[in-house]
Design a binder for these strands. Structure first.
Lengths: 345, 345
DNA sequence: TCTGGAATCTGGAGCGCTCCACTGTCGCGC
DNA sequence: GCGCGACAGTGGAGCGCTCCAGATTCCAGA
């Protein structure tokens, strides 16, 4: 950068150029190395000196340069998280990843998929920033390209089973969650229970097969019906439209996730269908929308904090432990009964 | 004897060593510098050599180390974005920031506020990663601490006017949007139009005063009523509850944002109130929820792409231009009439 | 008195990259 | 033949930090 001296810096922080460790050292009258020790809270510095260094650093508004740290350490202690900004559940998980990573001394970098920014690009950015491990909240199960990064860097896939050896996965006990949901509906007296599929979204394949299994367990194999869908409101709406166009409605629907459930609920209600009077709906995720008092969605709660914790721990373990076989961590699922399920008419 | 230092052990950390520029250079039989030139697509290399370098880089799976790049360049060409994972509108803006930044050759780093991770911490992380400029989608107008970073690093505040000199701001023409909304309601015949306040959220103060001004313009000063609130569903619900508990409902409500509007809508509907039959509702943002066919919210559309573009351009300009006075960019607002507004009974 | 070891502190090398100043090598006009 | 600019390519310095191998001090114990 050109050495354009900034004429008016805030007086408080003073330095036109970012303060370096050498500046702090000079001010405190010690060596760079010692400053480094003190700032990283390592033994090897006397109490008085320590104090002096800290004071000097504070006065200069010193901020360690993580780029230089990474370079020098040969490690970045940074975890990369690939997410979708539109999935509330991702937000939930990310919120829990921050403290989990911080606790283990890791930093977190977020990268989101967006139109024109696919998984590949987004993970590339993460890797370019020297993330030592990746947590993939988004990952196309069909193109294993992203997962295969596991060969390069420890990778944890969230929300579904990994299909590549050497890649960890953390996901919800979909079978349990779905079974609870189906059990609940059957207990209420439902038989015609439709499932809206989540397409390529995480967990969808498992939920689909768990739905089938649960239906069979209740000897309702004949009633099995899976509608194509996705994990968003539009898919729920589309499914709702489809159902409304048919002769008879099912009495209950297990949606791909909460967003899908909400879309479905709106579609049905605006089609004059009473929920849960005529049709019961069960969601999946238990994000911040579902517990809103008027949505009040019966849903399968995924343990975002648990998922985040395990994902981080697995990634770090793999990082510090070298090669490990791919592990699968299953987090608990819990049906939360609210107001969108009721006995069928 | 120092020169026979053995290379870093590979086995210990398990990770296969990441290929460096020197590796690529050796493989292609050229100097590091040339590799650097080729990879950055700079003139100074012959076509044949260029090809060879590219091939070598590809074969080694070479990935430039952005930490080293930053360090060497003295610049990171990275923009930091502070966001809230729970605001769909932020997601919208971020999605547009990516391409805008990429076009100017800048990288984007995301940092989210979360429980236990306040603005200060989140921006600290961004700064530690050497972001050269910050785009703040989140910023507490009361504590100017975050904004004051503008003294250190170019800062653009999104969603409200900056209160610190030397800090740019990009926000929607709240006055115009709100005026359109109020005009629309008045045109429909409404007089009792209540506004739910967005609390400390971005844009709230402007919307509040714009609401007051618009009401006065229509000689409805007596009908002005601002309910305390926030920019989320819960606030909408709370406001709805409050209104339901009163003797008479207003005929229209201008909500703090879409999320708030949705909360309100649900609260009113579950209280047996017809929307828009008895009460019309107008939101603000036009995020992905509002256009869902059953929510179908009349709302004020904020130009996320425009906001993102201006924020990025302003930040970069300030970066490359040295000192500039604080500028304010106002993006268009546009009322989108959908199905939650109708003439009063 | 000397020894040795803990506690404290220092200098230099080097992480992977970019930039600057430089060396060659052409080809072309005079 | 010479000069000269354009192009191709090289080597070294150094970004801010951490680590390693010492250097210095001080004091307990023989």
């Amino acid at each position: 950068m050109d050495e354009t001296l900034e004429p008016q810096q805030e007086a408080r922080q003073g330095s036109p150029q970012r303060a370096t460790m050498a500046d702090v050292a000079k001010r405190a009258g010690v060596s760079r190395t010692l400053v480094s020790l003190v700032l990283r809270d390592r033994p090897g510095a006397g109490a008085a000196t320590r104090e002096r260094v800290l004071k000097a650093a504070d006065e200069l508004g010193y901020r360690p340069d993580s780029a230089a740290q990474m370079l020098a350490r040969g490690r970045s202690r940074t975890l990369g998280v690939l997410m979708n900004l539109e999935q509330p559940f991702h937000a939930e998980v990310v919120k829990a990843i921050y403290p989990a990573a911080a606790q283990l001394g890791y930093d977190v970098l977020l990268s989101a998929v967006a139109p024109g920014r696919d998984e590949h690009l987004a993970t590339g950015a993460l890797l370019g920033h020297r993330c030592e491990a990746l947590v993939l909240l988004v990952s196309d199960p069909e193109s294993h390209a992203t997962e295969r990064l596991g060969g390069t860097v420890p990778t944890v896939v969230v929300g579904r089973q990994a299909t590549t050896p050497g890649v960890d996965s953390v996901h919800t006990a979909e079978a349990k969650g779905v079974r609870q949901a189906v059990d609940h509906l059957v207990d209420l007296g439902h038989r015609r229970i439709v499932h809206i599929d989540g397409g390529k979204g995480p967990g969808s394949a498992d939920r689909r097969s768990a739905y089938r299994a649960a239906m069979r367990r209740h000897r309702l194999a004949d009633e099995i019906r899976v509608l194509p869908g996705a994990q968003d409101e539009d898919a729920g709406i589309a499914a709702g439209m489809l159902l409304l166009s048919e002769d008879a409605l099912p009495t209950a629907v297990l949606a791909a996730n909460d967003r899908c459930a909400i879309g479905l609920m709106h579609a049905l209600r605006s089609g004059g269908v009473d929920v849960p009077g005529e049709v019961s709906i069960v969601g999946y995720d238990d994000g911040n929308l579902s517990h809103l008092s008027h949505i009040n969605l019966t849903t399968v709660r995924q343990d975002a904090a648990g998922i985040a914790g395990h994902a981080v721990r697995n990634a770090v373990e793999r990082l510090e432990n070298g090669t490990l076989p791919g592990r699968e961590t299953v987090c608990d699922a819990q049906l939360v009964v609210r107001a969108t399920t009721a006995p069928p008419r």
